[in-house]
Amino acid sequence: MSAPDSPRTRTQRPRRHDPDRRERIVAACLDVIAEHGVAGTSHRRVAAAADVPLGSMTYHFDGMDELLREAFGSFARGAAAQFERRMAGARTPGEAVQAVTTLITHDVFATQRDLVLSHELYTLAARDPAYRTLTNDWMRRSRDALGRHFDPATCRVLDAFVEGMTIHRALDTEPHDDVDVLDAVRRLAQVP
């Protein structure tokens, strides 16, 4: 009978060098939320999706709330940056109207994943002021991007229209005509 290995004689596996682990966990969290909703998101599911040991979850995040805030913060910042890029490309009022139209018809909620993640974030923000900070920052960035081309009152109306129209288009079972959106944006922006 051989003696059990002492800690000194056991072969130790080299530590895995994984500098992007935290970011991978955040991205995996968004994937899990998109598939299972916030209610179905757990440390175990996120760890499996990120291909990390379960212990990595508590090493990198104090708890599920911190992970959710990080994940939704990343999602909101990405969506705001896309909005800013689209609006930055416009040089004239007509191009700004077209940019808003394209945001509605092609950019916002371009995928089912984006739709689900947005609505999961909205639901959290409706219940918890900590998440409202994320949505308010997202709205502020959107309005600032619109503000390059429109007055503040028009920016608020257009931002609300972008949100509302994209939700309707994403959830409606009837086909949509992009020309209708363009006409509505022109009316709201008062640009012929």
Rank of each mutant, 00 (worst) to 15 (best):
P7L: 15
R8G: 09
T9E: 13
R10D: 07
R10P: 07
R15G: 08
R15L: 15
H17S: 11
D18Q: 12
D20G: 12
E23H: 11
R24Y: 05
I25W: 13
V26F: 13
A27H: 07
C29A: 15
L30K: 12
L30T: 13
D31E: 14
D31C: 08
V32F: 07
A34S: 15
A34Q: 08
E35G: 06
H36T: 05
G37R: 06
V38K: 04
A39S: 04
H43F: 14
R45S: 12
R45M: 07
V46S: 12
A48E: 15
A49G: 09
V52T: 15
V52M: 07
G55D: 13
M57V: 11
F61R: 06
M64K: 13
D65T: 12
D65I: 07
E66H: 14
L67G: 07
E70Y: 11
E70I: 04
F72N: 13
G73H: 06
S74D: 12
A76T: 10
R77Y: 03
A79V: 02
A80V: 01
F83H: 05
F83M: 02
E84Y: 03
E84T: 04
R86G: 00
M87E: 05
G89E: 15
T92Y: 01
P93I: 02
G94M: 00
V97W: 00
Q98E: 12
T101N: 00
T102G: 00
T102L: 02
L103N: 00
D107W: 00
Q112M: 06
L117T: 10
L117S: 09
E120S: 09
L124W: 03
D128S: 09
A130M: 11
Y131D: 08
L134R: 10
D137E: 15
D137G: 15
W138S: 02
M139S: 14
M139D: 14
R141F: 06
S142F: 04
S142H: 09
R143I: 04
L146W: 09
F150C: 05
D151P: 06
V157D: 09
V157Y: 02
F161L: 06
F161M: 06
M165I: 04
T166K: 01
T166L: 02
I167K: 05
H168A: 11
R169S: 03
E174W: 06
H176M: 03
D178K: 01
V179I: 04
D180P: 00
D180N: 10
V181H: 01
V181A: 06
D183K: 05
A184T: 13
V185I: 03
V185P: 02
R186Y: 03
L188R: 00
L188N: 03
P192A: 15
